[in-house]
Design a protein around this nucleic acid. Structure first.
Lengths: 206, 206
DNA sequence: TAGATTGTTAATCGATTAACAATC
DNA sequence: TAGATTGTTAATCGATTAACAATC
């Protein structure tokens, strides 16, 4: 079976599956099973099979899944069988780390434009790029058909930056600023904040 | 009411509530309601009230919640009404950004030890700290009673680093390496990987 | 073949929501 | 007071799991 409203929580697990598969593939492994994958990820094998069954039949009874095939399928489903252009806003410590991060390549993304509001930074080179004035963002991302943005700007201006992104046609935002963004329907936001992650664990400490 | 096995998904929302409250407080606001908070976060007001009801009664009928009081309560519940010492392993781009990040203070955390495996880095200053040899980690974190670690080391060695952390008594790990860690029962891991976040959104793009 | 593992169904489990009495 | 909002209950909704026929 396939289609008809896949739960978002299922979509959220697919990148995790894909990452685990890539690790296995890198180690030279060719076949895996829902049981093995579940073991590695702390997820039940039934859940993995159920999740995958939303999209089709990718395994073989008695054998399991050919890793390369399942990777291909997951990449296709997640639409990362291509290279998405990404805009990065805020070239501070986090922004610089993101530019230098080698993990985007081959996983579906490339930073194609970097922005900052600081006149001292605008015009400076960063990696292969030149830092552009954030005021020009809507125009630039629209021209380059950029649908994805990463916001690493200070919290104070993050909402303004998000507004500029939306104005330029961005539909997906990864927000490093520790604030909740208000965006129109149809624009997705993911948050990443080390403190929030840590605070989620302290509850369980003594 | 209180206690008796709070669902982890509820715990996961508390830091988000706390962050939103801090933002309101910073803007000079003194009172809020479950409705307003839910509006800001894209969560139903009923869910917020239900979540809070696991821990006690923090509001007032007809009025809502006094923000400073709810902040205090959430900080107490999450155990971030203190300052947790944190170890950081891997002083590359991400590690450096974390050391310079000002957002830990006042939110419950302080990096008290920085480690790297590179002999050229060991002994170098980073912020207020000196980079230490990762081989000494178990000893050092045990001495300083560090229960929380952030791993920003390369994927290849992240599991080894996690093992050292566990050996030193660490019970909570925030992992920036794009791999799933195997840890013993009782040790919590949170993952943060920009690519995984982005891949979760591309599914919805055209 | 015998053993293993899939894909799927039905049952269970848990989380979210709607509604409202209590009350500030 | 009148209006508003909490805390909580019961109902709904959705996700996870157990189990197994199908079959490699």
């Amino acid at each position: 079976m396939a289609s008809t409203e896949i739960p978002d929580i299922v979509i959220g697990r697919l990148p995790v599956y894909l990452r685990a598969l890539s690790l296995m593939a890198a180690a030279g492994q060719e076949i895996t099973s829902s049981h093995e994958l579940g073991e590695k990820l702390g997820i039940s094998s039934a859940q993995i099979r159920k999740d995958l069954s939303h999209f089709g039949e990718f395994g073989k009874q008695g054998t399991g899944y050919r890793i390369s095939h399942l990777q291909d399928q997951l990449r296709r489903i997640l639409k990362v069988d291509r290279e998405w252009p990404v805009a990065l806003i805020g070239i501070g410590d986090v922004g610089q780390a993101l530019v230098r991060y080698g993990g985007f390549r081959n996983r579906g993304f490339r930073i194609v434009a970097a922005f900052d509001a600081d006149p001292a930074k605008v015009g400076q080179p960063i990696g292969d790029l030149t830092i552009q004035d954030v005021a020009t963002l809507p125009e630039v991302v629209r021209e380059q058909n950029v649908q994805i943005a990463m916001i690493a700007a200070p919290a104070k201006v993050a909402q303004d930056v998000a507004d500029l992104c939306v104005k330029g046609g961005v539909r997906a935002i990864l927000n490093y600023a520790p604030i909740n963004l208000a965006v129109p329907e149809g624009v997705r936001v993911q948050y990443t904040d080390p403190v929030t992650h840590l605070q989620r664990m302290t509850y369980y400490l003594v």
